[in-house]
Structures are given as structure tokens and as C-alpha cells.
């Protein structure tokens, strides 16, 4: 199945793109997706320790393994602190 990963702020810099489409095996979850992202973009490991993950515009708690479906949009949202 195919999902879209949207990168915001620092994660966009590290991933080098605002979004990417990934093919995941059936049964993939947010947790397994984050593992995938860490190995695709090693620099993301540090970013993912503190960020909001949202599936289809809805928050998913850290450590939660929410099941993903074809066409899902997963947003990676690290905190900004500037102002």
C-alpha cells in the first residue's frame, strides 16, 4: 500500500523534501513507518524523538502503533521554538 509522508519544519530539511510517497507492506503501522523513516533518513532519528505525528490530520501518540491504510497521509511535525 502507498502512503504519503508530509515533512514539516526541521524534518523537511533533514528529509530533503516536503513530502514523499512510500510503498509499505500490508499491516504497516505508524510505529513501523517511523522505523522505516529512521533508516531512510538517519538524520531523522534525532528529530523523531520530539515531534507530533498525525495520520490524516489527526494526532497519533508517540509510541502508538496506529494501523495505516492505502492513501493515508502521515505528517511529521517537530516543534518550532523561534519567534
Amino acid at each position: 500500500m502507498r502512503v504519503r509522508v508530509l515533512y514539516f519544519a526541521r524534518s523537511r530539511e533533514v528529509a530533503g523534501a516536503p513530502e514523499e510517497a512510500l510503498d509499505l507492506p500490508p499491516g504497516a503501522t505508524t510505529s513501523s513507518l517511523l522505523d522505516d523513516l529512521r533508516s531512510r533518513h538517519p538524520g531523522l532519528a534525532g528529530v523523531l524523538t520530539s515531534c507530533v505525528v498525525a495520520v490524516n490530520h489527526e494526532y497519533v501518540a508517540a509510541g502508538e502503533a496506529a494501523e495505516l491504510r492505502e492513501g493515508d497521509e502521515v505528517a511529521i511535525i517537530p516543534p518550532l521554538s523561534g519567534g
Binding site: 526541521r10 534525532g46 524523538t49 520530539s50 507530533v52 508517540a62 521554538s81 523561534g82
Partner: peptide, 20 residues
């Protein structure tokens, strides 16, 4: 509640360094 762990200093861009 949203960010129980603080971001690593290197991942926390400041306007003075990163621009805005």
C-alpha cells in the same frame, strides 16, 4: 502533553541562526 521530550538542541532552529 504534545512534546513530553524536548527537541535536541541541534534540531531546534533559532531565528538568529536559521533565519526567518
Amino acid at each position: 502533553c504534545l512534546f513530553p521530550e524536548p527537541p535536541a538542541p541541534g534540531n531546534c532552529a533559532r531565528c538568529a541562526d536559521a533565519g526567518v
